[in-house]
Design a protein around this nucleic acid. Structure first.
Length: 584
RNA sequence: CGGGGUGUGGCCCAGCUUGGUUAGGGCGCCUGGUUCGGGACCAGGAGGUCGGCAGUUCAAAUCUGCCCACCCCGACCA
C-alpha cells in the first residue's frame, strides 16, 4: 500500500452528507473536480470495474452484444428525434471549431436508431440487443450526494431491436432477468417497481430500486400481492365499493342537493374541517395549473382531489398531455372563479379544463368551495352538482393507501434508482425512419426497448447498503480487493518477511490482495482497513509465535486463528464463499 | 431558477460581530529521535493570492458592492 494511491481522510469531508458520498471521499475512492464531476482513484476505479464486469457478464448471458458509441453527437440527431427541445438545458451542448452544434451524450437512443436504420434492414437481423458502458453527461440543475446524481457518470445502456411487439416483450423479459441478477450479485436489497414513462415515451417501464433511506426515489409496495410502484406512478384507483355507497348516503341521496354554508375567513382545508365539522376525507380541493404543451401553447387546468390527498403533478401532466406544469397565481384564480383560492370550487367552473380524481368522481358528499368568497357547499356530488370534466387518477399514493390490485394497505420506502427499462415500441424508429422488411417484403418500424444501469450510482447504492460507523463493508463481488495483509510491528524482520511471503503466495494463488506495508502503527492500519472495507483482513503479528495469523471478517468482526501453512487455502475458500453469498 | 449556507496551507476548523505589527490551532506532509495490537510522543521544518475583482480607510481575512465556486432544501430530473 505504500505505492497505492488511496488517500484516506481521518475526518469527514465538509462537502459530503450522505454516507456513500462521505465514504467514497474518505476512503479515497474518488475526488471532486467540479460539481457532479469526479476523478476516480485506483480503488474507486477497481470497484467500478467490478460492477462493470458483473453487468457485462449478465448482458452477455442474455446474448447481448457490446459496442462502443460516441459520447459526442451531432445535435441534429436530437433535433430530428425532437428531444433537443424536450431535454432543454440538461442537454450539454458544445460547438466544434466550425460552429457546428454537438451535444455530450446523456443517453444513446438517437445514435442507436441512426445506426440501425442504416445497418438493419431485414427481419433476419433481429432480434438484436446492443449495449455499451460509457460516461454519460447530463447538465443537472442540481447535482447532489456525490455520484448519486452527478453530471458525468458511468452508465450501461442497452437497446433491443425486434420485429414486433412479441419480440420486444421477449427482449424486455430477458433484460428484466439480467437486471434482477445484476442487483442481487451487487449485494443490493432491491425491488422492481412500475414507473412513469415520462418524456421518453413508450408503453411499459420499470425501475430497479435499491432500498436506502437516503435514496431519492419513493416507492410503495404491497406485501400481499407483490404490487410495487414508484409513487410517481402508483395507481390511486377508485374508493372501495362500500365507501362509495357510504359516500352516496352522505350526499343525501340522489334527489338532494348540496347545502350552502357561510364560512367567513375559512381558507384552508384544516379550517374548513374545523368550521364545518367534517373530516378532511369528506372535503375536496381544487388546484389550478398552467399547462405548457409541446408546441408552447398554454392552457389553464383545474384539478380536483380529496382534501386529505396530495395531487400527483406527474399524473396531472400526463393526463393533460403537458410538457410542464406551473401553479396558477392567486389573482388568476380569483379572476377565473370570482372567488379567492380558499373558496374556489368546481361548480359552474368555466375557462379552465377540469379534471377530477377518481376518488372524488366516484365519491360523494364533499365539502367544496362555492366559488363565492366565504361560502362553501356541503354534500356536493360529482355528476349531480357539478360536471366533473375529465375523470382521471390524479392523487399521490402513499403508505397505508389501499393496493390498487388487492386493496391491502401499501407500504412505503425510499431507494436509489439503479436501473430503468422502457419498452419503447416504435417511437424512435418511427420518427427517425428505422424500418425493416418482413418476410413478405412489407416495411415496418423496428420495435425498440432501452435499458439503463447507473454503474457509478450502483456503487453508491452498494455503500449505502453496506457500511457502518467505521467505514465501508464491501460485498466480495464489488470489493476492490478481497483481502488485506496487515503486518503489525513493522520493525520486526520476521513479521515483515512473513507478511510479504503470505502476500506473494496469495497473489500467486490468484487472490486479490493488498499488503499494508506502510510504516504506520497498528491502530492506523486497522482503522484504514475498516474504512476501506476489505472483506477480509489478515493480521500478521503476535500469533506468528505459534506459527499462525489472524483472519478477520469485516462484515461481522469475527476473527479466527489460521496456521501459516493453511492461510492461502483458507482465504481462497472464504473468498469463494463470499462471492457465493450474493450469487443469484 | 427560488430559499439557506460556506469559501482561511492537502484535510477539519478558529479568527470576522467591535478593521490595527510577522494570520492561528488540530490532522496530514518532511527531518531526527523514542515508540509499536485499534487513528502515539518529543524536537525541528516546509507549505497561504484569507475564492476573485473593485471600493471605503492611514490600515481590510475582518466593512461595502459586484462576480465566481461549492454544499444543503425546493423546483427540475428517461
Amino acid at each position: 500500500m505504500t505505492s497505492l494511491l488511496a488517500p484516506t481522510l481521518r475526518e469527514d469531508p465538509a462537502e459530503a452528507e450522505t454516507a456513500s458520498h462521505r465514504l467514497m471521499l474518505r476512503a479515497g475512492l474518488m475526488r471532486r473536480l467540479a460539481a457532479g464531476i469526479y476523478s476516480y482513484l485506483p480503488l474507486g476505479q477497481r470497484a467500478i470495474a467490478k460492477v462493470e464486469a458483473i453487468v457485462r457478464q449478465e448482458m452477455d448471458r442474455q446474448g447481448c452484444q457490446e459496442v462502443r458509441l460516441p459520447l459526442v453527437q451531432p445535435e441534429e440527431l436530437w433535433v430530428e428525434s425532437g428531444r433537443s427541445a424536450k431535454y432543454g438545458e440538461e442537454l450539454w451542448r458544445l460547438k466544434d471549431r466550425h460552429g457546428r452544434p454537438f451535444v455530450l451524450a446523456p443517453t444513446h437512443e438517437e445514435v442507436v436508431t441512426d445506426l440501425v436504420r442504416r445497418e438493419v434492414s431485414s427481419w433476419r437481423q433481429m432480434p438484436l440487443i446492443l449495449y455499451h458502458v460509457t460516461n454519460k453527461y447530463r447538465d443537472e440543475p442540481r447535482p447532489r450526494a456525490g455520484v448519486m446524481r452527478a453530471r458525468e457518470f458511468v452508465m450501461k445502456d442497452a437497446y433491443s431491436l425486434d420485429r414486433d411487439r412479441d419480440g420486444l416483450s421477449a427482449s424486455y423479459a430477458k433484460m428484466r432477468e439480467a437486471y434482477a441478477r445484476f442487483c442481487t450479485r451487487c449485494g443490493l436489497d432491491w425491488r422492481v417497481v412500475e414507473a412513469d414513462p415520462g418524456a421518453i415515451g413508450g408503453h411499459d417501464t420499470v425501475e430497479f430500486v435499491a432500498l436506502a433511506g437516503e435514496g431519492e426515489a419513493e416507492i410503495v409496495y404491497c406485501e400481499r400481492c407483490g404490487y410495487a410502484a414508484n409513487v410517481e406512478r402508483a395507481e390511486g384507483g377508485r374508493p372501495a365499493a362500500g365507501a362509495e355507497a357510504e359516500a352516496a348516503e352522505d350526499a343525501g341521496g340522489a334527489a338532494a342537493g348540496p347545502v350552502r354554508l357561510h364560512t367567513p375567513g375559512v381558507r384552508t382545508i384544516d379550517e374548513l374541517c374545523a368550521f364545518a365539522g367534517v373530516p378532511a376525507s369528506r372535503t375536496s380541493k381544487i388546484l389550478f395549473y398552467w399547462a405548457e404543451h409541446a408546441e408552447g401553447r398554454c392552457e389553464l387546468v383545474a384539478a380536483l382531489v380529496r382534501g386529505d390527498r396530495q395531487l400527483n403533478e406527474i399524473k396531472l401532466g400526463n393526463a393533460v398531455g403537458a410538457r410542464r406544469l406551473a401553479m396558477a397565481g392567486r389573482e388568476e384564480v380569483l379572476a377565473l372563479t370570482g372567488a379567492p383560492v380558499g373558496s374556489a370550487g368546481p361548480v359552474g367552473l368555466r375557462g379552465a379544463r377540469l379534471l377530477t380524481d377518481l376518488e372524488v368522481a366516484h365519491g360523494g358528499g364533499f365539502a367544496i368551495g362555492a366559488n363565492q368568497e366565504d361560502w362553501h357547499l356541503l354534500g356536493a356530488k360529482a355528476g349531480r352538482d357539478f360536471d366533473p370534466g375529465e375523470v382521471a387518477d390524479l392523487r399521490l399514493v402513499g403508505a397505508g393507501d389501499p393496493c390498487p390490485r388487492c386493496a391491502s394497505p401499501l407500504g412505503a420506502a425510499r431507494g436509489i434508482e439503479v436501473g430503468h427499462m422502457f419498452a419503447l415500441g416504435a417511437v424512435y424508429s418511427q420518427t427517425m425512419g428505422a424500418l425493416y422488411r418482413d418476410d413478405q417484403g412489407g416495411s415496418h418500424p423496428i420495435e425498440m426497448g432501452c435499458y439503463g444501469i447507473g454503474v457509478t450510482r450502483t456503487l453508491a447504492a452498494v455503500i449505502e447498503r453496506h457500511h457502518d460507523r467505521d467505514g465501508i463493508i464491501w460485498p466480495f463481488a464489488v470489493a476492490p480487493y478481497h483481502v488485506a495483509v496487515v503486518p503489525v510491528a513493522a520493525g520486526d524482520d520476521g513479521t515483515r518477511e512473513a507478511a510479504e511471503g503470505l502476500y506473494a503466495d496469495l497473489r500467486a494463488a490468484g487472490v486479490e490482495a493488498v499488503l499494508d506495508d506502510r510504516d504506520e502503527r497498528p491502530g492506523v492500519k486497522f482503522k484504514d482497513a475498516d474504512l476501506l472495507g476489505w472483506p477480509l483482513r489478515v493480521t500478521v503479528g503476535r500469533a506468528l509465535r505459534d506459527g499462525a495469523v489472524e483472519l478477520r471478517r469485516r462484515a461481522d468482526g469475527k476473527t479466527e486463528m489460521v496456521a501459516l501453512g493453511a492461510v492461502v487455502a483458507t482465504i481462497r475458500e472464504r473468498v469463494a464463499a463470499g462471492l457465493g453469498e450474493t450469487a443469484p
